[in-house]
């Protein structure tokens, strides 16, 4: 019984966390993968989304 709760808890906990993180990351698109995201005002300039075309 203990094994059931431990394994079940681990699996569901991990799955929930991963899913939440994945959806969040996917929504951000490439900015999530960008190394300068902290200093990059989203969608302005340095990631090249705003230029003088």
């Amino acid at each position: 019984m203990v094994a059931n709760i431990v394994i079940g808890g681990l699996i569901f906990g991990y799955a929930g966390w991963v899913l939440w993180k994945y959806i969040k990351k996917s929504k951000e698109g490439k900015c999530a993968a960008c190394a300068v995201k902290k200093s990059c005002p989203h969608g302005t300039g340095s990631c090249g989304t705003n230029n003088g075309e």
């Binding site: 991990y14 799955a15 899913l19």
Partner: peptide, 9 residues
């Protein structure tokens, strides 16, 4: 990660 979690759900 994602496929694991997706499979569970």
């Amino acid at each position: 990660t994602f496929i694991f979690a997706g499979s569970v759900f």
